[in-house]
Design a protein around this nucleic acid. Structure first.
Lengths: 187, 187
DNA sequence: ACATTTACATGATGCCCATCATATTTAGCC
DNA sequence: GGCTAAATATGATGGGCATCATGTAAATGT
């Protein structure tokens, strides 16, 4: 059955949101088109009315979720603390798409890689802007280094089965990043 | 045809090596059992004589390659420099299995996660041992923070399509880690 | 030497999934 | 209000892949 233009736009949005959560939770390969559509409250048939392929869905989902990902707007220390928390580690589906998906993007289409590139660029800028006390060169270095450590720590913490070590990876990285952004210029 | 016991052991080793390279290059899902066997110079039929399932192959491959991964044996700065190099970024198949596979381990069996846990533990120890000038608490923090940043930076650098930004992520992270391991105690 | 076991090859089997074909219903326009 | 086009549903289709079944030949032990 046909639906209103407005309804269609909402459906499209629901598909992207559902895909975003499912991809972060289970990975691109482990999620079927039908599963995404079902999670969006539709059936698999209408999929190709919205997207030209699963690869297209992946690319558009990435652009969608990376644009929405508003990182360190306020206090950087608080952002780092919540990013490197057990709560975030355990919340893949609702968590940072970079931590959840970056490693898989190597195997995706150019459009997906391009979306990731823009996402990374703006994230580095956002973190840099939260470090106004540093001079520009140190600021960029601190932003990139901190972000790499944050993403790496969450990926490592999620990969292992020892909860104590996983917690420790998060907490030590948090302390390490905190120390780093307090005293960059002394290198 | 049957082969000598020695030949069989060599075949098994070749399968693990081929799987290790292919998994790092293309990811677990994108590599078929038949492809691994072919890369090892065999056909798919003999596979289940060596492994009970593809999941079993994944777990054993991880244990194999993580045990072989001798990280920062010598100079830590040199290790960091080669790890965060364009050469390593571009060499997935022969590069660090943690950078290539850690993010995918979330979706694997408990045996695979367990192998990853032990691999991380020994890598943290290795890096820590390369920082003898620090006192123990700082040493562990520096080892974990540095390793998280290294892994995260390579994953990010591999995920994006802008070579200049990719190079910059590696180089700035290298400088950031270098600075961090020079002056941890000042937090 | 021979029997037996065993490692590997060839050749199914069955499932899952991306994508396509067709039907149905209703929104959008006159 | 009726016509047309569009959005979604239901129902194929075809390929890839993990796994299994069976054949074959050579290594091993007596």
């Amino acid at each position: 059955m046909k639906v209103s233009r407005e309804q269609m736009a909402e459906n499209r949005h629901r598909i992207l949101d559902a895909a975003s959560r499912l991809f972060r939770e289970k990975g691109f390969d482990a999620v079927s088109v039908a599963e995404v559509m079902k999670a969006a409250g539709l059936t698999h048939g209408g999929f190709y009315g919205h997207f030209s392929s699963k690869d297209d869905l992946i690319a558009q989902t990435l652009a969608h979720v990376l644009a929405a990902d508003s990182g360190g707007g306020g206090d950087l220390r608080a952002y780092v603390g919540s990013y490197l928390s057990p709560r975030h580690r355990d919340n893949c589906a609702g968590g940072c798409p970079t931590a959840g998906l970056a490693a898989a993007i190597r195997h995706q289409t150019p459009a997906a890689r391009s979306a990731m590139t823009e996402g990374l660029r703006s994230q580095i800028d956002r973190i840099g802007k939260a470090l106004p006390e540093l001079d520009p060169a140190d600021r960029r270095r601190a932003a990139i280094g901190s972000w790499a450590a944050m993403v790496g720590a969450v990926i490592l913490a999620r990969a292992i089965d020892d909860p104590a070590l996983s917690d420790e990876v998060l907490e030590q990285t948090r302390a390490w990043v905190d120390a780093g952004i307090s005293q960059v210029s002394a290198s």
